[in-house]
């Protein structure tokens, strides 16, 4: 019986919940789906879990702005519970829409320090990107240098309030995942489509200061199986997908 349990938070419009649970299970955890209404009714159930995951999708249709309505619900009713959950040494992962929710609810960074807004292309895009990780400043990314994962979003451009904020985040090693070229270079200008949305400093994922919360736009749960890789028919070695590392790291953290 797996000892690490994951709460997969569902809201109206969440749609990557199943495959994210599947990825956690592949990594050895037990995943349970909880609708946000149940968590609002009974926030006391959160400490029964070690990992909280906000999966991808379009919570409340992304109406108003991506992740905004769920973020407001969390900010208005669950901020304290989530804070305690993190302080108790647990992990929180937000993927795509989950990242948008974490950043807009002030769980990940200070309120209004940064946001995720419309891609420079002005449209939703599904494409694979190379990512460079700063490895050891976030539990989920431990020992991972590079990733190849798909993005699928319209509002994934990371923007900060001002350059000071960017400097502080950088100094604190919170800008943990960046869009890169195939060689793994991620500083300076990375052109579209390698930086698929125009994110400042090529930021694709952000850590909180504790290193136990990660928000990221790319989808690790979509690169678990060897046949997820867009060029798997060209490759000799059908190894497991890059994304699985991230889920294994989370489970291993508790073992």
């Amino acid at each position: 019986m797996p000892s690490v349990t994951v709460l997969i938070l569902r809201a109206p419009g969440t749609n990557c919940d199943r495959e994210t649970a599947f990825a956690f299970e592949r990594a050895g955890a037990l995943a349970k789906f909880v609708h946000v209404n149940r968590l609002l009714e009974n926030p006391g159930q959160l400490p029964d879990f070690q990992i909280l995951c906000l999966p991808g999708g379009f919570s409340y249709g992304d109406d108003i702005a991506a992740g905004r309505i769920l973020a407001c619900q969390i900010k208005n009713h669950l901020a304290e519970v989530l804070h305690e959950f993190r302080e108790a040494g647990n992990l929180i992962l937000g993927i795509c829409n989950g990242f948008q929710v974490l950043i807009k609810s002030g769980i990940l960074l200070d309120d209004a320090a940064a946001t995720l807004t419309w891609n420079d292309s002005g449209k939703f895009e599904d494409r694979w990107v190379h990512l460079k990780s700063s490895q050891n400043s976030n539990v989920f990314l431990e020992g991972v240098d590079k990733f190849y994962l798909p993005i699928a979003h319209a509002e994934g451009k990371f923007v900060v309030r001002d350059t000071d904020t960017l400097g502080t985040l950088d100094q604190n090693c919170q800008l943990v995942l960046r869009y890169a070229d195939p060689e793994g270079r991620c500083d300076g200008v990375i052109e579209y489509p390698q930086n698929p949305n125009g994110s400042v400093a090529n930021v694709a994922g952000v850590s909180d200061q504790s290193g136990r919360i990660l928000g990221m736009m790319p989808h690790p749960e979509r690169h678990i199986d060897p046949t997820h890789h867009p060029q798997w028919t060209r490759r000799k070695n059908q190894a497991e997908g890059d994304g699985l590392r991230l889920f294994r790291n989370a489970v291993r953290y508790f073992e």
């Binding site: 749609n15 990557c16 199943r18 495959e19 599947f22 990825a23 991808g56 449209k123 939703f124 895009e125 599904d126 494409r127 798909p150 699928a152 989808h219 749960e221 979509r222 678990i224 046949t227 997820h228 867009p230 060029q231 028919t233 060209r234």
Partner: peptide
């Protein structure tokens, strides 16, 4: 094609766009 999410649900094997 790229405006459509063609990989959600995690079961994608052969995508609409392929190759190197």
């Amino acid at each position: 094609i790229r405006q459509y999410d063609h990989e959600v649900q995690g079961g994608s094997v052969i995508k609409p766009l392929v190759g190197i």
